[in-house]
Design a protein around this nucleic acid. Structure first.
Lengths: 102, 102
DNA sequence: TATATATTTGACAAATAATGTCAAGACAAT
DNA sequence: ATTGTCTTGACATTATTTGTCAAATATATA
């Protein structure tokens, strides 16, 4: 299973970009990008969208990977992870059907 | 659909406890508990476990409600919520099967 | 080996978010 | 009006996230 960091690093290298070059495009310090690619630090949503743009990756897909990573990390340690995900699904449905459409 | 706050308030009132009494048992300010019961502030895991203990609620169940609340809140705004949950499920499986058993 | 370039690491600062404290306000019952 | 309960909001404290930087490490090549 490929991590977010691996996806980013693979794509960057495939495009022949240096870490500092991509970092410059993203307007962040190369040290941060290095840590993100090694999954030592988590990118935020804004950065994910920028990355998808620059690396020509599907925005929705990368975002889904990013959010699911966060969730998996949150609940992996719990032994009720399956139940949690089922409940979350229900709640999302509920929120969607009951929220005010803008 | 019952929220965490509602579950707590219902049970507290059913047990005939005043807000300040339960707050004292939990060793928190009544203002905080008031906000938690109205879902204005989120309890943390430690508090959830204390609450389950004192209110005689199932620990696993309350914890599952609490975590799924957090997740649903995180992803409800995304329009790829379903995909995110499916991915999270896979990742949890992966983490579980690949993590070192203590 | 020496030099240049790229990445990693860790210490630290700054910004942001979570949590705790408190007093005044609102509400209901008597 | 007084008492008791809960709510609200301003503020302080603490924790977490995010950003900055320079030194250390790694890699390649003359």
């Amino acid at each position: 299973m490929e991590t977010i960091g691996q996806i980013i690093r693979n794509k960057r290298e495939h495009l022949g970009l240096l870490l500092r070059q991509l970092a410059a495009s993203l307007d962040i310090d190369p040290a941060i990008l290095s840590k993100i690619e090694r999954n030592e630090r988590k990118p935020n949503k804004e950065l994910i969208l920028k990355l998808a743009e620059i690396l020509e990756l599907d925005k929705e897909e990368l975002l889904a990977q990013y959010i699911s990573d966060k969730i998996a990390y949150d609940i992996a340690e719990e032994d009720c992870a399956d139940r949690v995900l089922k409940l979350a699904e229900k709640k999302v449905q509920y929120i969607k059907t009951h929220s005010v459409k803008s």
